[in-house]
């Protein structure tokens, strides 16, 4: 029960944070990526603000276990690979095209109009395509 409550509180805080920081406004996100136009540095401040509590949180994980059960995620040992690079490039392209990433797409669902809903549906479709795509990439192998 506490795990479910914690998850809900985190979702709520995440939503308030995204709203307050202006990150559900696609123009601010595209403005950050728009280095050849009028660059908007807001996203950098959001990132900086978010990294601070998280850096402390990672320190606090040492020698402890999560408050409500389970275990802390172990750092992934493997190096950045082809899937990571391919995925990040495709994601960056989509992010630039519309100025939306998964968090803000969900946070702005209620006020993003039909375009926001269509984006979310397309995004979930893309997530489902990723399952066979990953299998293909893995079996195509060799070039990791």
């Amino acid at each position: 029960m506490m795990r479910i409550l914690t998850a809900a509180v985190c979702g709520a805080l995440f939503g308030i944070g995204l709203y307050l920081s202006g990150m559900t406004d696609t123009r601010k996100v595209q403005g950050f990526l728009d280095v050849t136009g009028t660059w908007d540095p807001t996203l950098m401040f959001v990132m900086g603000g978010a990294l601070l509590p998280m850096a402390i949180a990672w320190r606090l994980t040492q020698g402890r276990t999560p408050r409500y059960g389970g275990s802390f995620p172990a750092p992934l040992q493997h190096r950045p690979d082809r899937n990571l690079a391919t995925g990040a490039i495709l994601f960056g392209m989509g992010w630039g095209l519309a100025g939306l990433c998964p968090g803000p797409a969900m946070a702005s669902l209620s006020y993003g109009g039909s375009g926001g809903v269509i984006f979310l549906v397309a995004m979930i479709a893309g997530m489902l395509i990723a399952v066979p795509a990953r299998r293909r990439l893995d079996t195509a192998g060799g070039l990791t």
């Binding site: 495709l90 960056g92 939306l100 990433c101 984006f119 979310l120 995004m123 893309g126 997530m127 395509i129």
Partner: peptide, 10 residues
């Protein structure tokens, strides 16, 4: 954009 974001992030 939605398809790319969904596919790329996963």
């Amino acid at each position: 954009a939605g398809l790319l974001v969904g596919l790329g992030t996963r």
